[in-house]
């Protein structure tokens, strides 16, 4: 479904990604792990047209999407939750969700109900300003916002960052649920072990290059990967 092939990208003159290959098939759950500065977030930003494209192809469901503006990428069916600052803090929960469906003429009621079903607390607090909510709840708002268009692929950039440890598991459960409902998931995680345990496939990125690619289980079992990237 998503095929990133031989991608070179970066910011301005600075090249960060060096011929990256990533693939996500229908309903798959794919994780990108790797040390800081490996270019994990840059991959997502590149898919969303937020970096300087320097070469290679990005296609989604058979259509070339490299060079498209973010609003066009969204229309293709990709949702994206950035790592930090992923909510509109002075707006209410409801308004945040409405913004998620901005490209539609009207707020899709079925998608809204689906989001409320997944995150009941958001319905309870739909008039609350998101800036006054806890980190875990803000993360739900961010995911809910990205799900308003019922994307075929949901990209999450370090969703566990800044969450209290006991909330991290809950977050992963939620991602599992989203995936089970038929949405493919591409996720960048610092919490590598847990993410690899739950995913279908994983990529290890180092210094902007592909280093390993395998099923999550196999990567966890790989002695070298364990030693170099998972802390033993």
């Amino acid at each position: 479904m998503l095929i990133v092939e031989d991608l070179d990208a970066g910011y301005g003159d600075l090249q960060v990604l060096d011929s990256i290959d990533i693939e996500v098939t229908e309903e798959e759950y794919v994780v990108i792990v790797g040390p800081n500065g490996a270019g994990k977030s840059t991959v997502m930003k590149s898919i969303f047209g937020l970096t300087t494209h320097m070469g290679g192809d990005i296609s989604f469901q058979g259509r070339e999407i490299s060079g498209l503006r973010p609003e066009a990428v969204i229309k293709e069916g990709i949702g994206y939750v950035p790592q930090r600052n992923n909510v509109f803090p002075s707006m209410t929960v409801m308004e945040n969700l409405e913004m998620g469906a901005y490209i539609l003429d009207e707020v899709p009621q079925d998608a809204l109900e689906a989001v409320f079903e997944r995150f009941p607390i958001l319905e309870e607090r739909k008039s609350q300003k998101v800036g006054t909510m806890s980190g875990g709840q803000q993360q739900m708002v961010a995911m809910g916002r990205a799900l308003m268009l019922d994307p075929d692929l949901l990209m999450l950039d370090e969703p566990s960052a800044g969450l209290a440890p006991d909330l991290v598991d809950e977050m992963f459960d939620r991602v599992d649920l989203i995936n089970e409902m038929g949405t493919a998931v591409l996720i960048v995680e610092q919490n590598a072990k847990e993410a690899l345990r739950r995913c279908d496939r994983g990529y290890v990125l180092v210094q902007g290059e592909n280093r390993y690619e395998d099923t999550g289980e196999a990567l966890l079992g790989n002695e070298q990967v364990r030693r170099d990237f998972l802390g033993g």
């Binding site: 600052n85 909510v87 509109f88 002075s90 707006m91």
Partner: peptide, 13 residues
């Protein structure tokens, strides 16, 4: 939304 978070506004479409 844009006053709140310009980058997010961009990726929200």
């Amino acid at each position: 939304a844009m006053a709140d978070n310009k980058d997010l506004a961009l990726v929200t479409g």
